[in-house]
Design a protein around this nucleic acid. Structure first.
Lengths: 201, 201
DNA sequence: CAACGTTGTTAGTGATCGTTAACGTACTTA
DNA sequence: TAAGTACGTTAACGATCACTAACAACGTTG
């Protein structure tokens, strides 16, 4: 039986760089023009091959978006869990979450944009999975926030979380300050929005 | 000469309700599926007529999006200017801007979503016009913010503005609290993010 | 060397979709 | 009543686009 290269990424240790190169280029294009606004030929051209060559690496255009968004969502959740698990102090955990999301947003602004924009272009199973991961990530935030500020009810904590994530995710629309300054600014603003005083140093 | 109904909205006083009804339905659909993800037939079905009947009211699908986004941008800018013009005290003006944007976002969440998402699907002249209006609106914020906090440089003020707008624009992703509570929460968080209270040190 | 898997090419196919054409109908008005 | 206008309808056209078919070059390996 002939192995189809367009299936799941090989569980083998060595990941062929080509898939990720394609996903990277596709992410930039999707971020700029939207999933439906980008053609297969455009993506191919962006990586130096033309058109249907991509089907040697991905089953379909939908599969590209699916892998892209599930990948980012898993990474985000994993990072969030790691930050909160490694910190006993809740206030520090919250600050750690803020730092994590800022770092992530500044490093992967194209993916953030696609994530906000083209979630509904996913196939049903992929969309379901991504929503689940998203929910999990928000839940990490909500639980941490509720520990720090027990006077909040859960819906308020959830809305606050969405608001702070929206604040940090605004990065792709700014990007005029250098990374360090931007990171510090977002950190200060996020903590201010969450109503926690900047921790004395 | 036969007057073409698909031209500019009649300068006459009475605006036919049909155009706005169509724009409203289209906004909801665009918000949910993206501009390229919605067909003309879908929009028609949403208002009870089927398909090409819309060309009696709009020159093209692009024209719908164009009118939608220039409309919202103009309204936003006009409202922003009005709020700042009617207030002498800068701190109050800033708070007024926050309140205005919150009210606007809560009332027009579909349009906010489309505005963030499908700006690049506009035709070149429309996109140019919308960008201009956007820039003007941000400028109102930046100037007000710089008056309240003169220690900020302009780029920081601009990035802060984008961040606060991102915070408020997160509304479409939450929407679990009732309007009043949500409005109050966003107001508190926005002001906190802007650091209006005296900063220690 | 021969068989094969990998990765690319170009040409074509079927579906979708925005748009136009041709036509029908009801309401207003001279 | 006749003409005109507003607002629909269905059918078809043309372009775009995701995807497939058929084929080729090349490195690896038995």
């Amino acid at each position: 039986m002939t192995r189809n290269a367009a299936e799941q990424p090989p569980a083998s240790p060595q990941t062929p760089s080509r898939r990720e190169q394609i996903l990277g280029a596709a992410a930039e294009l999707f971020a700029r023009y939207g999933f439906h606004g980008v053609g297969i030929d455009d993506i191919g051209a962006a990586v130096g091959v033309s058109g249907p060559a991509l089907y040697r690496h991905f089953r379909s255009k939908d599969a590209m978006l699916g892998e892209m968004l599930t990948g980012i969502s898993e990474k985000l959740l994993r990072g969030g869990r790691a930050r909160t698990a490694s910190t006993a102090n809740p206030a520090e955990a919250l600050e750690s979450l803020v730092r994590w999301h800022i770092e992530f947003a500044l490093t992967n602004s194209a993916l953030i944009t696609v994530h906000l924009r083209d979630l509904d272009s996913l196939t049903e199973p992929d969309r379901h999975r991504v929503r689940e991961l998203q929910r999990g990530y928000v839940e990490v935030w909500v639980r941490t926030l509720l520990t720090v500020r027990p006077e909040l009810d859960e819906d308020t904590a959830r809305a606050s979380t969405h608001a702070v994530l929206g604040l940090i995710n605004s990065t792709p629309y700014s990007a005029r300050l250098d990374t360090g300054t931007m990171s510090a600014l977002l950190h200060r603003m996020a903590m201010g929005a969450l109503g926690t005083e900047p921790r004395p140093r």
